[in-house]
Structures are given as C-alpha cells and as structure tokens.
Amino acid sequence: MKQRAGFLYTLPQILWLLVFFLAPLCIIIAYSFLKKGLYGGVEPQFSLEAYQAMANPSILMVAWRTLRISVIATILTILIALPCGYSIARSSNQAIRLFLVIVPFWTNFLVRIYAWIAILGNEGFINDIIRWVAPGSAGIQFLYNQWAVVLVLVYMYLPYAILPLFSTIDKFDFTLLDAARDLGATRFQSYTRVLLPNIRSGLVTAGLFTFVPIFGAYAVPLLIGGKDSYMLGNIIADQLTKTRNWPLASAISMTVTLSTTILVFLVALRKPKEQKWVFDADPSAAMSAAGGR
C-alpha cells in the first residue's frame, strides 16, 4: 500500500522525464550510429561514419580548444570566487553581500552578453573612453577572440562558484585558522593547510557548477567569440542546422554528455561518506542565482 502510494506520487515525473528526456537522449544515441540522410535526417542503416568524422582534425582541434577554454575559465573563476566567498562568510552583513553578488544575475543572460558587446566592441564603452582620452586614435577591437570569451564566461559563472564556496566556508570553524596561527603557521599556510582541505566539497561543487555549463557553452562563443573561439556547442548547432549532418551532431552531443557525466560522477562519488552528492553546499543558495545560464 505504502509502496504503491509513493510510486503513484512519482509517476507523472517518471513518465514526463522518460518521454521528454530519456527518450530524446536514446534517439540521439541511436542517431549517432546511423547514416546521414541526403537532406538532413538519417537513413536507417547502421554506420560508424559519425564517429569516424569526429576524428577529423578540425573537430579535434575544437574539442581541445573547448577543453582548454573551460579549464582556464573554471580555474580563473574559482581563484576569484574563493576570496569573495571567504569575505562574504566572514562579513557581519552576509545577507547584503550575497545580495550584491546575485542582483546582476537577475538580468537576462542575453542582455548581459549584449552589455559586454557594448563594453568591448569597436564602438563600445572602453573605446569611447580611449577616444575621449586620446582623440583621433583608432578603435581597438577587444571582441571576437578567445580572451573575450574567457572573460565573459568567467563573468557569467562567477556566482555559481561564489555561492557554494560561501556556504561551505560559512560552515568552516574560523578558530581553526587562529589555532593554525597559534601553532606557528603563517597566514598563507593557515589558508593552504587548514582552510582549503576543509572546504574541498565546496571547491568541487563550485568547479562542477562552472566547468559543466562552460564545457557546453553555445551563446557566449557565438556572440562574443570569433572564428578562433568556436567551441563544441557551436559545432553541434552548425551540424544540426546548417550542414544538416544529424548523426555527427548526435555523436558530438553524446561525447559531451558522456564526458561531463563521467566527470561529475567521478568527482561527486569520490568521497561519498562525507558529502551528500555534489550538493554538499546548500543547493537552494546555489540556485537563487540560477538565472545566469
């Protein structure tokens, strides 16, 4: 009786996710092993062409670039977010400081991308200032390169790193830092030897929250980046809508999915006893900023 009641409650969700999440995912898996149709779509014929096409140097190069950009952006984000989270956690008005971090992210994702175009562009804010300081100088194009992409990605995902880091640092017992100092550690040593090992779960959550969406980024490289900053997300979209090679788009999607899922499970399951899933940090706090995808 109880068993059936619990199952009935969850039935709508199970069905919805089966039909609109799991089934589409399975179709993609299937498509990746089929032959591409002449005018888009697929031919019902088993083939490994799509996976062979992925070995194409131009796609491999984009994959490598995607990985590189994601790793650099994630590391930068965490390096910036760490002192921020610490300063919020030690502040006496945490609420206001958190609020200030979250507010910019209630603004639409595309509006924020557009704002960066307005800042970095040829006719943008920075060039405005440059012309104002040195009239007649030619504009400098800051947009359409990898560094602009990294900058905007860091901007987009900072709160995702700050919030989980804050909530783990907030649970950290700061007298441990006093104790470390008392026992002879320098301030730097007290951070590296006592603080960091004790907020590992927060670091992991922050890393996943930034790395995973950046790895699948589509809009930022499309609008901010140039030809040299195409990422896997852009290739998938192109194969799907322009080249109309659905098996290839599916195969790349599968690869992205598998690699992120494996990464998440590896990292999250490494210390299963001490942390509750990857969301050891308060999930609702992390999601109050979930605006900025």
Binding site: D173, L176, A180, N198
Partner: peptide
Amino acid sequence: TVFQSYALFPH
C-alpha cells in the same frame, strides 16, 4: 592556546 571548541583540524 587550547581553544574552547578544541579547534582540532578535522581533516
């Protein structure tokens, strides 16, 4: 110092 909360390093 011996701290009130002991301040033992949990890791």
